[in-house]
Design a protein around this nucleic acid. Sequence first.
DNA 1: CAGTGTGAATATCTTCACAGCA
DNA 2: TGCTGTGAAGATATTCACACTG
Lengths: 218, 218
Amino acid sequence: MLNLKNEKIPRATIGRLSLYVQQLEILEQQGEKVISSEKLAKICGVNPSQIRKDLAYFGEFGVRGVGYYIYELKQAIKKSLGLDRIWKVVLVGVGNLGRALLRHNVLIKRGFIVVGAFDCDPFKIGEEIAGLEVMCSSNLPQKIKELDAEIGIITTPQERAQRAANYLIKGGIKGIVNFAPARITVPSHIVVEYVDFINHLFSTAFQISLNQAKGMYS
Amino acid sequence: MLNLKNEKIPRATIGRLSLYVQQLEILEQQGEKVISSEKLAKICGVNPSQIRKDLAYFGEFGVRGVGYYIYELKQAIKKSLGLDRIWKVVLVGVGNLGRALLRHNVLIKRGFIVVGAFDCDPFKIGEEIAGLEVMCSSNLPQKIKELDAEIGIITTPQERAQRAANYLIKGGIKGIVNFAPARITVPSHIVVEYVDFINHLFSTAFQISLNQAKGMYS
DNA sequence: CAGTGTGAATATCTTCACAGCA
DNA sequence: TGCTGTGAAGATATTCACACTG
């Protein structure tokens, strides 16, 4: 159950909370118990007030004069984001990227369990990857209900992304994370997030070009 | 060579330009020649003025009363971003994700050629993936120079990200795209971009939880 | 007294609205 | 006439600065 003040939360805040959770987990592993917004800010590369503001959307988790108890803060953030439970996910498109995600333990580590893998290529159907048998995409609508999945990950090529989305929608999916370089159209009650890592390469290349133009490497 | 007005470009603009390029390429494949900011906006899911403003940072590419010539616009954006050439990239960390990126043709399609793959695991060194022989990470500093790479992609586990970064820095890398869930410290003249797709899953889960709290599915 | 929580100030980003050009 | 390019307005996001508290 979400517990939040009835302000709306900036998109950017959500992205950072994810970062905080990850860094808090690392600190926890290192045996740290308490951290100040200033130190956490340094680790995350953001401004300390930013952190305090971000957290304030959800409640008061800190102790004045002390800081934040790491374990409690992590739990509080996860609860605030609705991450205090397992989310069932189906993945559509078992290419290189899809396989990597299926085998990547980061999903399960963060509470996302892939309960079904789908592809439309007959050569891939039946193959077993990371303990899952690849199923035919056209079974998606029915399987989503059977498997009780709420989130769909699309890792198809660009031209098949919309079709994958259509299957997911028909199955009653609640949210889609789209790794394909294509916009998709969905009913407004379905959440869509786009993951586009090429733009980070573009951005890096651009910034390097800027530095070069400034004569930084000459 | 970059050609831009000497304003500074919003970060968010760069991210969208990447999106425009991809959509323009799709339109081009579909045989379209001209497009208005309004139509492109609809395709990209943004506001038309946004597109015009984004483009205005780099010059005047449109024709009033007509729109934008797709091919010319795409070229102009790529040139503006410094993407009118091939960028040589090295990849460090040949796990599931690293392999997927090496085999993923999207990199080369966008002008990024991986010229070297590195790992510190003796079992992986020597293995051939996508035509590249995996080399020992400790050779990075020397190899980066030999191969003339400018961008490093880090796909190691979290705890080895900083070491990978150190090797890259020693080799004189100009930019780093870090897929590992860890912040890294680098000298200020080196560009760093973080790719964190877990945050999109977090964000999706959170928004679904919000919808549920609003009783949207009840 | 160290460090949170927060209103107020600033900076940044987005959208509007319309002048101006093909 | 239709659509771009752009200043001005509006909306968001970030940072500052300090009152407040354990």
